[in-house]
Amino acid sequence: MNLDLFSEPGENATELGRGGLEKMLSDATSPVHYRLRLGDHEIDMNARIGSPIRLEYLGEIRCVYCDKVTNKSFGQGYCYEHFTTLAQCDSCMMSPEKCHFDQGTCREPEWAEVTCMQSHYVYLANASGIKVGITRGGQVPTRWVDQGATQAMIIARVSSRKLAGLLEVVFKQHVADKTNWRTMLKGTSEPLDLPALRDQLVAECRPELDALIADYGLQAIQLINHADVRSLDYPVDQYPEKVSSLTLDKQPVVEGTLLGIKGQYWILDTGVINIRRHTGYQVVLR
């Protein structure tokens, strides 16, 4: 019998995997099922809940695009060169209403044709309260899981990322467009009547929506008033009363008992750590 399997986390504990951190993979089951890829290993993180774990930073960050060592991670895993040259790192990814493709100044038009010039959805989600967001068609419900939403519902389908951004600008005059991650990690949000909130929001924004539809056409902007509400729950044994953030930059060894996972966060009895924020960090998990 391998006694290491039952040992407390530490330098001699069983190594579960090593390599560059990536955002966790997820399956929208009940509860959400999380897996972490490290090197050649895919680790079932749900199975680790309730057990001690130890994440050791090896002092090296590798760019997720070119794999070169970088002193600092930019935009969740890129070296500075590619952060400043790739279209996927451009400012319009955060502000899609300012689409560079539309202006003829896109860094990579071919990439944009595939990524941005395709169907996107505008949605309402309940993670730390009501919020509006956008995502590509293939990212439902992954986007909602990554945000730690307990409820979500599509409210519009549009023909490009820019149009999704324009609708989001209209809607966020009335609802938030960001998740309060600290509130999200303190527990499950109270259920909301998303269809009623959608109807109220559309009514409040009707003049601006009609103007956008007049400019771009009914085929390009389709408001959806019949979508189902998707409910999600997460593998959490215990939520923290106070959210204390852990980062590998300040604390190269993060360890404790894993109490749960929500969004892209591990909830430990010693604090919470955002795994996606550390993309490209070379680590060992024990």
Results as ranks from 00 to 15, higher is better:
159 S>W: 07
207 P>H: 11
160 S>Q: 02
201 L>Q: 05
167 L>R: 05
151 Q>T: 00
166 L>M: 14
161 R>L: 08
203 A>V: 02
151 Q>D: 00
176 A>F: 13
175 V>M: 09
199 D>G: 01
209 L>H: 06
176 A>K: 14
168 E>N: 01
166 L>C: 12
151 Q>I: 06
172 K>F: 13
160 S>T: 14
192 L>V: 07
194 L>C: 06
199 D>E: 13
208 E>Y: 02
191 P>V: 01
201 L>V: 06
201 L>W: 02
157 R>K: 14
181 W>D: 07
152 A>H: 06
147 Q>H: 12
179 T>A: 09
198 R>Y: 00
156 A>H: 09
204 E>I: 02
171 F>H: 04
165 G>W: 10
164 A>W: 03
159 S>Y: 13
202 V>I: 15
194 L>F: 08
183 T>R: 10
197 L>P: 03
200 Q>E: 15
148 G>Y: 09
192 L>G: 05
197 L>G: 04
191 P>I: 03
153 M>P: 01
161 R>W: 04
187 G>H: 03
155 I>H: 02
207 P>V: 03
191 P>D: 07
190 E>S: 12
177 D>A: 15
207 P>I: 10
199 D>T: 12
169 V>D: 13
193 D>L: 02
187 G>P: 05
151 Q>K: 03
176 A>T: 14
174 H>S: 13
208 E>R: 10
162 K>R: 15
163 L>E: 01
185 L>C: 12
164 A>C: 09
201 L>K: 06
173 Q>R: 12
195 P>E: 08
205 C>G: 00
187 G>K: 11
201 L>Y: 04
154 I>G: 02
161 R>P: 05
207 P>Q: 10
161 R>G: 04
202 V>R: 09
196 A>M: 09
205 C>T: 10
205 C>Y: 00
202 V>P: 00
170 V>C: 10
157 R>G: 02
203 A>G: 12
172 K>W: 11
187 G>V: 02
149 A>N: 04
202 V>N: 08
188 T>E: 15
160 S>K: 06
189 S>I: 01
198 R>H: 05
182 R>P: 12
194 L>Q: 11
168 E>I: 02
207 P>N: 07
186 K>D: 01
169 V>Y: 08
175 V>N: 08
180 N>R: 12
162 K>P: 08
209 L>E: 07
171 F>L: 13
179 T>C: 13
201 L>N: 05
205 C>S: 15
171 F>N: 01
184 M>Y: 08
150 T>E: 00
162 K>H: 09
204 E>W: 10
202 V>M: 14
160 S>N: 09
179 T>Q: 06
194 L>P: 02
146 D>E: 15
152 A>W: 00
194 L>G: 05
161 R>T: 03
193 D>P: 08
180 N>L: 09
154 I>T: 13
166 L>A: 01
159 S>L: 05
166 L>R: 12
187 G>I: 03
159 S>R: 06
160 S>V: 06
205 C>L: 09
190 E>W: 02
180 N>S: 12
163 L>H: 04
181 W>C: 03
147 Q>C: 10
146 D>F: 07
157 R>V: 14
195 P>L: 05
199 D>M: 03
202 V>T: 12
169 V>A: 13
194 L>E: 03
173 Q>W: 00
191 P>H: 04
